[in-house]
Amino acid sequence: MADLRDLYQEVVIDHSKRPHNFHKLEDANRSAQGYNPLCGDKVTVYVKLENGRLRDVSFEGSGCAISTASASIMTEAVKGKTAEEARNLFESFHDLVTRGNAPDDRATPLGKLAVFSNVSEYPVRVKCATLAWHTLRSALESSESVVSTE
């Protein structure tokens, strides 16, 4: 169980059970949906982008502990950052979960995101950890009119 505790750290389990920023963002001007057909995980990421900065970020959806916790911690990590900083952070995070690079090696400090460093030892779970990030990137690339209020 020791190994699994490295994957499922308390922080991860807490965020998966009580995700932060877990709601629809009513005044979002960017959003995108992500879907992992392998496990059926679905996520919608909402962004309020102002002058190139992510003023607010939230998400909705259903997924496993890794994907939910990753989405939750991501929303906290990117809030207030510029779109470019968010993209750089995704690159560092992607390196972390695919190669397990120590966070202090990175140009972009990962902070709390470092709890996912052991995901790299579970290759089939990498997609769970990165689903929200891919969706965020799509949201940032989407045009302003995409957000639907349906």
Binding site: M1, L38, C39, G40, C64, A65, I66, T68
Partner: peptide, 23 residues
């Protein structure tokens, strides 16, 4: 209850148990 099948599958795998999770 309260645990996604994907997480169940990962924990069981660590116990040497091969199951399928998903749709």
């Amino acid at each position: 209850e309260g645990v996604h099948p994907h997480d169940v599958g990962t924990v069981l795998d660590q116990e040497g148990i091969a199951v399928r999770t998903g749709h």
